[in-house]
Write a protein that binds this DNA or RNA. Structure first.
Lengths: 220, 220
DNA sequence: GCTTGACTACCTATTAGTAGGTAGATATAG
DNA sequence: CTATATCTACCTACTAATAGGTAGTCAAGC
């Protein structure tokens, strides 16, 4: 109710086709609601009571689907990671020699596709960013998913950047790895500051700066 | 006890000479401990009980100094903001015409001085970044301090960047404001990812990328 | 008739916060 | 100089609310 607009906004990212054992209808609703609330408030400020109120069921019913909060968190995080990684184009498809410049631009766009809409979601930032802020309070299982996501994201992005620079479509100083670190950091920070200041323009300006470099326009 | 190493690490940033009515010895210890714990765990995961255990006093004694958690938070945040802003060199000092190129480099370094040591503080990131992640759960008072800090930081940094580029010591594409947005975002994100992955190298790489641009080395 | 998915009713621990008291320092008035 | 009052900084003991979680019940549907 209070946050139903967010459910709609982020619904596209909530399919669970990637999970080993797919969630039931109710379990998926619980996971969706939990994810949306966590992206706004953080893990520790979302309780089973909040979820129960939002969904119109009892907390015990939520425990039936997700015995512990840690399991609920791990489910949501795994699903989010898998969906995100599935969305990335596989730039290794086919012979590396046959990789056209366009494939790198397409890979980059598939990376940015789920990020751009966050611009207009009030109070929302990246799920992984929010959890990272309170990393030390999370259970080891969730910490592991979190840390590996950041690493995998950076590795994948560095590969795209490297291939794209070799193909002449991307431009940046230094190594592809350190430029990927800059990229992921800047995007995380931009979402965080946009959320705290309520200014979507901040988000625009950061992406413009990054893409200005990457596409090699406006360099002094 | 558990986090005493952090108290030592961050102690330099905890002077309270800027507060209108200075804190008593005990109040300052409470504020210091609270700040250190929040920078690691976030606002919602630090309780009066945690503070009491850490300090060896009762929770009621903490309530004596800080009646509510919101007041404690506001005190710590105000002090942090004032100390940070006081650390920034005033680039408007003297005649604007007499501003040498060095003054901008010095201003930039005074900005970076408190940020660089975070590299080696395990599990720690910027106090404002951590709070920003759970912005919606904070009381309006604290939200206001938070949002204004991000804005003021960006405005100040943009002024330094603009002056420095005009003076020929800084280089960057686009407006000084949007480059300042990139800079603050990248630093926030770098601290967050460093914290979640436990890799200080990530922090190094991001700063190297940013300063490579700013100082105009290694451009492609 | 067993599985599913919800329920009521509880439990224990922790949360922020309050009430009221006390030891010791300091100030003040007779 | 002493009796009284006030203040500081802590204490014990409590509260109401919320936290995550458990045990056992019950109805519907394949």
């Amino acid at each position: 109710m209070a946050n139903s607009h967010i459910s709609e906004q982020a619904s596209t990212a909530l399919s669970d086709k990637s999970l080993c054992c797919p969630l039931s209808d109710t379990a998926r609703k619980i996971a969706d609601t939990f994810q949306n609330l966590v992206m706004v408030r953080g893990f520790n400020a979302v309780s089973y009571g909040d979820l129960a109120k939002e969904l119109g069921i009892r907390t015990a019913s939520i425990h039936y689907h997700f015995p512990t909060k840690a399991e609920l968190g791990a489910t949501v995080l795994t699903r989010y990671r898998d969906n995100t990684m599935n969305a990335w184009q596989d730039i290794d498809a086919g012979d590396p020699e046959s990789n056209t410049p366009e494939i790198y631009k397409k890979a980059y766009e598939s990376f940015m596709a789920p990020i751009r809409p966050v611009r207009d979601m009030q109070g929302v930032s990246c799920l992984f960013g929010v959890l990272g802020a309170t990393y030390e309070t999370l259970c080891p299982n969730i910490q592991g998913i979190l840390a590996s996501f950041f690493v995998e994201q950076e590795v994948w992005l560095a590969r795209v950047f490297k291939g794209g620079r070799d193909a002449g479509v991307f431009h940046f100083p230094g190594t592809a790895t350190s430029f990927a670190k800059l990229y992921t950091s800047a995007l995380q920070g931009a979402m965080l500051i946009k959320k705290s200041t309520g200014k979507p323009e901040h988000f625009d300006a950061v992406i413009e700066q990054l893409e200005g470099m990457l596409f090699g326009v406006g360099r002094t």
